[in-house]
Design a protein around this nucleic acid. Structure first.
Lengths: 241, 241
DNA sequence: CTACATTATCTAAAATCCAGACATTAAATA
DNA sequence: TATTTAATGTCTGGATTTTAGATAATGTAG
């Protein structure tokens, strides 16, 4: 969550980013915690500057929290229920932080701006978790990766937003060849399979899975990866192009 | 295109509707023409009222132009390029209609409101073309069905919006069983097949197509349809449920 | 060198897809 | 009324794809 500063933002329009990473058989989402009393978790969000493409705004938000650019990011749904507002959460936050913030914690103009009903465009991004150094912005207490199945309760409808993002990830994973964006540049077949098994929460047959992936014809087979384990070394692969 | 009246709309946010119908082997889109000098065609559009769900806003716009409700309508993409504004088109319209409208044709406040950069949520609807009585609103000169392949040049990026809507129609037609929304309540297998052939612009094999559709297990077979033609009468089908 | 664990590939069976052939039927025609 | 015509409805065998199991290969430990 950001506050309108001197920037000239479009009013009542926000962008929420679901940033997916993958590590040790867990699909993870990057979730900041707000730097206030009370456990307020909120997806990385922001607003659209007047002369900025919405896609550029999403990139900017992603970059601001991860340092990552040029990765896969796509809009997937607009959340626009009538009552969709920061007011409830913000009032609770202000109530719990009277001592440090004073009665309002911000001027009335800011308060009115931020508590209006908001329409939010959901974007989801897939990043190589090893390349991300989660970056706190001013308002954050921390920013951490959570298993998508064990997310903290977040403000507003942010938990629903993640659920919907996961739906879209599953729908698009094959069509758009985006799974590989979650892995390092080189990876083994087993790693891809484990990623799929994590995303779909079900096992795949190893023999046929390998065939399916290789038949996509988008991977280059590289040298073998010697792990020191007492077994055959697997090949490394890399997304071609 | 609508103008902000006494209604309290969200600023810089619009909804554009691509309303698909089907008639005589043609996939059609409902396009109003504006009631001004100059050939201005614009998709049915509108704004979101402050206390209104965005889906409800889309329904309202659809209903206003077609009288239809309770049909399939879904958001499919947000169009939000930085330069996306009514200004160019509106200036041209005002220039061509100086005599009737005066210099501006509206007050400065309205002009400034409407010519700001807009983010637009694209919705597409599928309707039974026989149930629609296209309804002009104040600003329309006419509202007609156009073959999706022979649309007039429309204002702004509206032609692109239709192209993207067609992409989504093709992607979702099987998954969401939405094709039938374009037909009357009862229809023959041939009609479904022709609809598919029109949507995908390619032929399907009759024998296998019938099997595929029946295997969906969502149709009830009704009585036969006697057309008076010198051949076997086809069965009528209806979407179950 | 052998055992073990894991990876890579092959193959046969099953399921699905596809193209053509065949059977049916409502109305026109003779 | 029998025949013809044009379309619909169904079946079948071959091709292709998917699935499950079996087999081969290989890096390290013992």
């Amino acid at each position: 969550m950001d506050f309108p500063g001197e920037q000239n933002y479009i009013e009542q329009l926000s962008i929420d980013c679901v940033i997916f990473g993958y590590h040790q058989k867990q699909l993870k989402v990057l979730v900041p915690k707000l730097n206030f009393n009370g456990d307020f978790y909120a997806l990385p969000s922001g607003f659209v500057i007047q002369d900025e493409d919405i896609d550029a705004a999403a990139d900017r938000i992603l970059r601001g929290r991860t340092g990552i650019q040029d990765t896969y990011i796509d809009q997937f749904h607009v959340f626009g229920k009538a009552g969709r507002s920061n007011e409830t959460f913000l009032d609770k936050l202000l109530e719990l932080n009277k001592d440090t913030l004073g009665e309002k914690g911000m001027n009335k103009k800011q308060y009115d701006w931020i508590t209006k009903r908001f329409v939010s465009i959901g974007y989801y991004a897939l990043v190589d978790i090893n390349k991300v150094i989660p970056k706190k912005i001013a308002i954050d207490a921390s920013i951490d990766w959570y298993d998508v199945r064990e997310l903290p309760p977040m403000i507003m409808d942010h938990n629903e937003i993640v659920a919907k993002a996961l739906d879209h990830l599953r729908i698009n994973i094959d069509d758009k060849l985006i799974a590989f964006k979650l892995l390092s540049e080189t990876f083994t077949m087993k790693e891809i399979q484990e990623l799929y098994e994590t995303v779909f929460n079900k096992p795949f047959a190893r023999n046929n899975f390998q065939k399916k992936i290789l038949d996509l014809n988008v991977l280059d087979r590289l040298e073998k990866k010697f792990t020191g384990a007492a077994n055959k070394a697997p090949f490394l692969y890399r997304l071609r192009g």
